[in-house]
Simulated assay, not measured.
Amino acid sequence: MKVEAHDLVMTYGDVRAVDGISFTVEPGEFFGLLGPNGAGKTTTLEILEGLRRPDSGRASVDGVDPGRRDPRLLRRIGVQLQASAFFEKLTAREQLDTFGSLYGAPRERTDALLETVGLTEHAGILADKLSGGQRQRLSIACALVNDPDLVFLDEPTAALDPQARRNLWDVLARLNESGRTVVLTTHYMEEAETLCDRVAIVDRGRVLAIDSPAALVRGLDRPVQISLAPGTLDAAQARALPGAEAVDVDEVAVRVSTRNPAPVLTALAERDALDGLSVRGATLEDVFLDLTGREYRA
């Protein structure tokens, strides 16, 4: 399913939460919205989901305005909100059975989804007794209960431990590989680099950059940092390496910055100085900080 945002604007009083955001998500694409707190990500997602009407601009999902709440469109969309509320006094299994009944989903889909999100052993526990991470996984299962063609996920792994987060990445990747379109917001740059075909970095309600994670990183033109164990080379020897642009030597490491790492690594190999070596290039997090800054946000 194709998703389009055309010059979306949304204000809350004097705050312009969304200020002319435009992008297109192609069918079958895994697309990420990245930005600091208050950047306008969730509001943009809610407009595309049909939960909010923009002050101006146009949203389109498969050629249809989601704000019309067309039942034929809604049956093809799965939504996981940033904060989810469950029915009181229902277990995890009963929550999924209830959501599934609204879509006419077969009962056996509940078992499959519980296994998918790792909640089979907790199926009989009341939702309000689940941990935060378990509730987050249950909310994702509820978003998938109708076997949607398009899935919106608002910070789906925010409350998960690293193991659960990695397992869920596998679930989301398989979901996308099966032909579904996935649109998510996340604060985890590694998550976006791993999963997303393209990302849009937004701040103060505007799109600052949009491309594949790899292309955004290449465009940063940040030097590669090669770190060596302390004492491997002295400062003069490090500066003499071919391609070295900057050198920093302390009691922790010898660090060589370069935009042309091949000759540096070749020279180090010739010196038999590769033990303990690490190479760090720019990442999507570097792009994010370069575009949005480092100041604290309320």
Rank of each mutant, 00 (worst) to 15 (best):
R107Y: 02
S60D: 03
A229C: 03
I201F: 02
P162I: 06
H6F: 11
A159K: 03
L81I: 04
L168Y: 05
G32C: 10
G205D: 02
A229Q: 12
V254N: 08
R259T: 14
L96D: 01
A164I: 02
T24Q: 08
E4C: 07
L34E: 02
F23E: 00
R206D: 06
F87P: 09
V183L: 15
T43F: 07
A267R: 10
P213S: 10
T24W: 02
T232W: 01
L90V: 01
E251N: 12
E29A: 08
L8W: 03
A83K: 13
Q95M: 10
A141L: 06
A141Q: 05
D286P: 08
L144Y: 05
V252L: 14
Q237E: 15
L8F: 06
L216I: 06
E155D: 07
T194A: 14
D19S: 12
V64D: 01
A215T: 13
I210S: 15
H122D: 12
S60V: 00
G78Q: 04
A164R: 09
A127V: 03
R255T: 13
A164T: 07
Y12L: 10
A141C: 07
L241D: 12
L114I: 07
S131L: 11
L126A: 13
A5S: 06
H187Y: 05
R16T: 15
L268T: 11
R53L: 13
L233G: 11
Q80D: 01
S212N: 05
D290Q: 14
A141K: 10
L48S: 07
K41C: 09
Q225E: 14
A267C: 10
S139Q: 00
V64Y: 00
T120E: 15
E190W: 00
S84H: 12
L184S: 05
P242D: 05
S278Y: 03
A5W: 07
A229W: 00
D55F: 11
I47Y: 05
V207Q: 00
E245Q: 15
A17E: 04
V18L: 06
E190N: 11
L96F: 08
L168W: 05
H122S: 15
N146T: 12
I140R: 02
L81S: 13
T232K: 05
V61L: 07
D154M: 08
V117W: 04
A17G: 09
G281T: 01
D147R: 14
S139L: 01
Q95G: 05
Q80Y: 09
E29V: 06
T42D: 07
R135N: 00
L90P: 04
R72P: 00
A105E: 02
D154P: 08
P36L: 03
V247S: 09
L33C: 02
P263I: 03
E26V: 10
R16E: 11
R135G: 06
E121C: 03
D128Y: 04
E155K: 04
D250P: 11
R137E: 00
D62W: 04
Q95W: 01
D203Q: 07
Y296Q: 14
L208N: 05
Y103P: 10
I47M: 15
L144P: 03
P230C: 00
L284V: 08
T194S: 12
V217I: 15
D161V: 09
P230G: 01
T181F: 07
S278D: 13
I125H: 11
E285N: 12
G20T: 02
A158V: 07
